[in-house]
Amino acid sequence: MLETLLIAWRESLEAALVVGVLLTYLARSGQRSGVAYVWAGSLLAILAALACGLVSNDAASRLDPDLQELVQASILFLAVAVLTWMILWMHRNAAGLGGELRRKADQALVTGRLMGLAAIAFVAVFREGLETVLFLWGVLVQHPDLTALPFVAAGLAGAALAVATAWLFFRGFRFLSLPRFFRVTGVLLLLVAAGLLVSGVNKLIGLGYLSPIVAQVWSTAWLLRDDSPLGTFLAALVGYRSRPSLAELLAFVTYVPLMLWALRRVDASRRPAERASARSAA
């Protein structure tokens, strides 16, 4: 039963952390209109995961497993694209949120951005939610009577624990000053996006479409095991893996500096505008 709880915790943690960082960012930056969309995307994903999990138990309706994996990889790359776009506009927005301006009424988000938020939440929750549903369904199959109930309860408790873990983690963020908060959430989102990109690359390698180039560049398992609590947490948050292939590392070291460069460009183009808006506000 403890194993059931731990598995459900691990499976749900990534979703809880991604939704957590979005909600934390939106609440602190006063963009409450986005909060509802993140919740809507998450709830829709839970329903979709339940529906898909249950439907896919009917053998005839199953997709070929390798095709399913390819679809998952494509969704990951799409999520990276949407998240990249969001990181850039969030960064641009954060500039206008310093000091007094922040206290203004909620900033209205345009529909496209709201849909982007909902889509990211949906993908994060659906991905992990489907695995949790399949896992718990298996528990039900193996205990076809009332003895399954404690296991299902343990599974739900594990998912609740994942939400609690994310909540506790992001509570710590309230102690950051606003500029530091934006910097930290920005870097975190960037690493989340990089982690999703690496996961997508990993899937393509596992499917045989992409060469790992070098199967294992190094192993940090002696320092941080993948299945240790911290290893699990970092795997969920930023896609930590102890034995990355060269192809995965290349994806990471291409994406992160490119994004840092793009964010710096936003900063550079923002400064004159910021001064102008500060003048007009005065």
Partner: peptide, 13 residues
């Protein structure tokens, strides 16, 4: 899933 077969590639080990 039950009854399914998935291909998992590993190389360069």
């Amino acid at each position: 899933q039950p009854g399914q077969t998935a291909a998992v590639y590993v190389s360069g080990l």
